[in-house]
Simulated assay, not measured.
Amino acid sequence: MVDKHPAVIVQCASTAEVISAVKFGNEHDAPISVHGGGHNVVGRIAGDDGLMIDLSRMNSFRVDPTTETARVELGVVLGELARETHAFGFETPLESNSTSGVGGLTLGGGSVGSPERME
């Protein structure tokens, strides 16, 4: 469905790697796009001939039942988080599609604009 072809895809596993990828993209004047949970089926976030930062390896999270909070990395998908929070009797206040990325839903409200609008 999506026919986009970034020149480079960087699969980051840490915040430090994301920072390095952004610096590299900026130093080489490359358009930067970000792949989180990968739920955007129309591919509006992907770009051609640029650098894509893939956050799917940043998929850890921790639920703290005492404070009723969760710390979630940007590559986590909703189904993974929901299974863990349900074990503690909590619900996730996001959409019902288990394959949606938590990062995109949290930062973009599930509505992602075109790369030109991202800063």
Rank of each mutant, 00 (worst) to 15 (best):
V34E: 03
V22T: 02
D48S: 10
A87P: 01
H5N: 10
M58F: 05
T67L: 08
L105Y: 09
G79H: 05
V63R: 02
A7W: 02
G43S: 12
A30Y: 10
G104H: 01
A82E: 10
S14P: 03
T92I: 15
P65I: 03
G79L: 00
A21E: 05
A70W: 02
N97T: 15
L105S: 08
H39P: 04
D48E: 09
T69Q: 09
S98E: 14
G38H: 06
A82N: 10
G79P: 02
R83Y: 11
T85M: 12
S96D: 15
S114L: 15
S20P: 00
G113E: 10
F90K: 02
L55T: 01
S33V: 10
S14W: 07
S14C: 08
D29M: 08
V42C: 15
M118E: 06
F88S: 11
L74S: 13
M1T: 12
S96H: 14
C12K: 05
F90S: 03
D49H: 10
P115F: 07
G37V: 06
V63T: 08
V41C: 12
D64R: 00
S98P: 14
N40M: 10
E17M: 03
F61P: 00
T15D: 07
G50S: 02
S96A: 15
I9N: 07
V22F: 05
V2S: 08
S60P: 00
E91H: 13
G75N: 03
R62M: 09
G104I: 05
S14Y: 07
R117Q: 11
A82P: 00
E73G: 01
E80A: 14
R83L: 13
A70C: 03
G101I: 07
